[in-house]
Design a protein around this nucleic acid. Structure first.
Lengths: 203, 203
DNA sequence: TCGACAATACCGACCGGTTGGTATGTTGTC
DNA sequence: GACAACATACCAACCGGTCGGTATTGTCGA
């Protein structure tokens, strides 16, 4: 089972851009790491920016598969599913920083003003993943009678908090701070859905 | 009052790096925008990375002055001060994206793996600003009898959420989503400190 | 008050290496 | 023999950084 040049470049792009950023990652560097030639690169991608768009889509696909098969969907209660999702996000924060941070969150910061195509690919990835949370949030809102928020808005806020957690982890060069930040996000969700006047005792 | 080359370069760096990212901003570009020559650049900064560190420190200083003189300190109640701070942050989200997003949040994503000096300058800026919130949070925790969180942790979480809000605004190319995200952060703080007889009694 | 000197601020041509991108093969497969 | 999948060689523009030089300012003794 031999991966072709295109797949090797895409996989290499994910790790390299996450570690060095998009602009600082050169085509030559990518080719050398992937073990392919420059000719192969421009055979599969018409430009460096096109590779970035393809990498963002590849990212959407692989992370989509990861979350689709994650265990948090099993819970019967919609709030439990949301909290289990956040616990899963906490579990993912492990090892080196470039291994758990977000490709598209990193890339959009650099490229939002330079390339509409890259920005839009990153938007699709982030907002698309957020959309997968909306059903559970909507159910929880209805079940627990919460008012004043929409499923879309809260779903996006989970992603904002997690992206921000990655920034702080990078700044401090310490994954633990990201775990702490997602813990706050988890507490927010608990407080939001906590039935009034009743203390939900769990864990 | 004629600004010297160093100050012009620093001011230019803030806006340019916020718009294009650090790696994509060339020394020539900076010099052209600032109206100075390359000789002047390397007279004042020994390298491009040194300019980045100086720009981060300059950013810390100017934002520090902005928040120090902001009106939210006037409130008598510590929780009111925190909420007024968040309202102030919401007010700041106006105009073009590159005018309200965070220089060091953008820069640390690119440079955390490439330069310890830049990463540390960004860390000082973010964590230093967060530290200015700790006193108010500490007072509010004591006054409202909240347990389970530390002032440092919550202060950092405000910054994480705000940084994440900027990422989403960039991805969507829409400042409004950032306002919505900071609104969630504000709601979290309200819920955290809302007097709850039952929870205050226990533990 | 002044000239001598030094330090600082700034200039712009220049350098070697790297950049994204192209033009032209070569190879394997149907 | 057509076509996709690569490889090789190459390019002009650009990159961060250097260097020798000049203009301006500060200082201090006479």
């Amino acid at each position: 089972m031999k991966p072709n040049a295109r797949d090797k470049l895409l996989d290499t792009a994910l790790s390299t851009i996450r570690k060095k950023g998009y602009s600082a990652t050169s085509v030559d560097d990518l080719c050398a790491r992937a073990g392919v030639t420059k000719g192969a690169f421009f055979h599969h991608f018409k430009s460096k920016d096109a590779l970035a768009v393809a990498a963002a889509d590849h990212w959407s696909q692989s992370t989509g598969a990861l979350f689709a098969s994650a265990p948090y969907h099993d819970r019967a209660d919609p709030l439990a599913r949301i909290l289990a999702y956040l616990d899963f996000r906490i579990e993912l924060v492990a090892g080196e920083i470039e291994e758990f941070t977000c490709l598209v969150g990193t890339m959009v910061q650099e490229a939002y003003g330079a390339s509409d195509e890259i920005r839009d690919a990153c938007r699709r990835s982030i907002f698309g993943h957020a959309a997968t949370l909306e059903a559970d949030i909507g159910e929880a809102i209805e079940k627990y009678g919460v008012s004043g928020i929409t499923p879309e808005s809260l779903a996006l806020y989970t992603q904002a908090s997690i992206q921000g957690a990655f920034i702080l982890a990078k700044a401090k060069n310490d994954p633990d701070v990201a775990v702490d930040m997602i813990g706050h996000l988890r507490r927010y969700v608990e407080l939001l859905f906590k039935p009034k006047g009743e203390e939900a005792r769990k864990k």
